[in-house]
């Protein structure tokens, strides 16, 4: 080994082992393994307990014996109805607010500042607080009772910040040349919005939509006291109906011997969410990152 005092530049061969870096590297790898391990544990456990009961008839039967036997058809139907109401209300609000924030405000506008800040706070509100609000406002004050309508509206308030954030991003990604070109052609503002900006901003809207659907499907606490527990097939939006996540909670906590069907329902829910997740990545990769000039 050459004497370091002789050559001022260390050669590669005498590169010292950097012990602090080694130690931190192994710690960080350990953390990564731990996180990966937990996910595999949870998902593996779900698949192991849930898969044996999963069958086509589980999806098309009504629950029997408080959910211990039978399937989840009415629960799926209620979930879809709640989701439908949630999106029917939140989407127009989303598009309107996002267009306003992205296209019609200058920095320092008072209304825009207020709307942004309140959406930040709204995004952080705990779901059980949405539940309290939904119960007091939609179920009692507006007289909707424990109903799919009241649950859907509560969820609409909840997913709005997620939708708006993503849709606004979509509008901001439209290059300014498009707006200038539209103005140069003498297009009116509504026409510019409808025919030029909205089509180009659609990917952002779709990503937000999918994220919002994911959040809505996962929600339990906000629905306990708004859409209620009833596991019968709903005949209208004013009926009470339980979602997949409430069904899981009820079977796991309140029905002795309900764990097995709770796991199977959880597997259905997770599969649904995974499909949504993959769809988001797919759209984000294929659509968002492709230059709009290639259209």
């Amino acid at each position: 080994m050459p004497d370091p005092s002789v050559s001022p530049l260390p050669s590669l061969s005498e590169h010292r082992v950097d012990w602090p870096d080694r130690a931190v590297a192994s710690l960080v790898w350990l953390v990564a393994l731990l996180v990966t391990g937990s996910l595999l544990w949870i998902v593996g456990d779900l698949a192991r307990h849930g898969a044996p009961e999963l069958s086509w008839s589980f999806l098309t039967d009504s629950p029997r014996d408080a959910g211990r036997a039978g399937g989840i058809l009415p629960v799926v139907v209620s979930t879809l109805m709640i989701l439908g109401i949630c999106l029917a209300v939140s989407l127009p609000m989303d598009v309107g607010t996002a267009i306003f924030l992205a296209e019609f405000t200058r920095t320092g506008g008072l209304l825009a500042h207020f709307v942004r800040r309140s959406l930040d706070v709204l995004a952080g509100v705990p779901s059980i607080v949405f539940g309290l609000f939904g119960n007091a406002f939609f179920s009692i004050y507006l007289g909707m009772g424990f109903s799919i309508l009241s649950g859907g509206l509560t969820l609409a308030c909840m997913v709005l910040p997620i939708l708006i954030r993503s849709t606004e991003e979509g509008f901001r990604s439209v290059p300014d040349e498009y707006r200038k070109a539209a103005a140069a052609l003498g297009l009116s503002q509504p026409a510019t919005l409808w025919q030029i900006l909205l089509p180009v901003a659609t990917p952002g809207l779709v990503v937000g939509l999918i994220l919002g659907v994911g959040r809505a499907l996962a929600e339990t606490a906000a629905l306990l006291f708004t859409s209620g527990y009833v596991a019968r097939m709903p005949s209208s939006v004013l009926d009470s109906g339980r979602t997949l996540s409430i069904h899981i909670y009820d079977l796991a906590m309140n029905v002795p011997g309900g764990e097995s069907n709770a796991y199977t329902t959880a597997l259905v829910l997770i599969t649904l969410l995974l499909m949504i997740n993959v769809l988001t990545f797919w759209i984000a990769d294929r659509w968002l990152h492709r230059g709009i000039t290639h259209r």
Binding site: M93, T97, F100, S188, P190
Partner: peptide, 30 residues
Amino acid sequence: SEHLLLWTLRGLAMVAGCIILLIGAFLAVE
């Protein structure tokens, strides 16, 4: 039509911004 559009958008944004106030108000009243 441009005025109508602007005020519709302002209205929607206003409603979206007021949800959190409504939540606070209802919790407070109860």
